[in-house]
């Protein structure tokens, strides 16, 4: 059976409080299970209750199917949960009108089958999965180039008005895993950096691996990230990262 260990971090954009981080992530509570589910979701800043929406998406990924045939009913359940959160308290006129638009989020989920050495991933938007083997980038999914991050991606909406045809916007990828592979899940700002550095011939996953290997990695990562933001190497945005190493 494939062995796996992972580290994760999620942090708000510089200048915002931790509570304002609209990214969310899912990691397995027990890494001994055969099927391990990981997910990240990036709530859109311009919509309200985005943090709650990205949280619902990763939570629903844990126990619900995101396969094309069943996704409609999963999304429907998640949207209803979001509605009940957004209407739970009386809101001022502007918050009410904003909530009526709905929340939007990018999503990326991956299920690892440790017994069969395979993974299934599903994505919408610009959260990206990287697979590294032998210190080379094997796969970048669904974003392929750094320049693609400037475009407006499809996002999952909590409002049924914007859910038409969403099944066709979901992208799926099934791949195999070998011992010593690494899978990285990254929200857009850090994913864009990984692709930009890779395109310049660097191997940026080594920096991430190194940062996350420290005992107090959360502080080290935060300091490193703030430096990169200051140098305009990484966009000032919420950042979420999961690094999964296999043996």
């Amino acid at each position: 059976m494939l062995k796996c260990n992972f580290k994760s971090i999620t942090t708000s954009k510089f200048g915002n409080t931790a509570d304002e981080n609209e990214d969310n992530l899912l990691t397995p509570s027990n890494a001994d299970e055969t099927l391990l589910r990981f997910a990240i979701s990036d709530g859109a800043t311009e919509t309200s209750f985005s943090k709650e929406w990205s949280d619902l998406l990763v939570t629903y990924y844990k126990d619900n199917s995101f396969e094309q045939d069943h996704f409609g009913s999963t999304l429907d359940k998640a949207s209803k949960s979001w509605q009940s959160i957004a209407t739970a308290i009386e809101l001022p006129w502007y918050a009410q009108q904003k909530a009526e638009i709905g929340a939007f989020a990018a999503f990326l989920g991956v299920t690892i089958n440790r017994e069969e050495f395979i993974f299934n991933s599903v994505a919408i938007g610009d959260c990206t999965l990287f697979q590294v083997r032998g210190n080379e980038l094997m796969l970048s999914f669904p974003m392929l180039k750094a320049e693609e991050f400037g475009n407006t991606p499809h996002l999952l909406s909590s409002n049924s008005k914007y859910q038409n045809g969403v099944e066709t916007q979901l992208k799926y990828y099934k791949g195999e895993i070998l011992p010593d592979d690494t899978i990285i899940l990254a929200t857009d700002a850090i994913a864009a950096w990984v692709l930009k550095r890779t395109e310049k011939g660097d191997k940026p996953w080594n920096s991430l691996q190194c940062l996350l290997s420290f005992e107090d990695y959360k502080t080290d990562f935060q300091n490193w990230l703030n430096n990169k933001r200051q140098e305009s190497e990484i966009k000032n945005d919420d950042v979420t990262l999961i690094v999964i190493n296999f043996q």
């Binding site: 309200s48 209750f49 809101l91 502007y94 918050a95 009108q97 909530a99 638009i101």
Partner: peptide
């Protein structure tokens, strides 16, 4: 003004 307020509105306020 209404649209600008809504654009800047989040669940916790504007």
């Amino acid at each position: 003004l209404q649209q600008l307020v809504i654009k800047c509105a989040k669940s916790e306020g504007v």
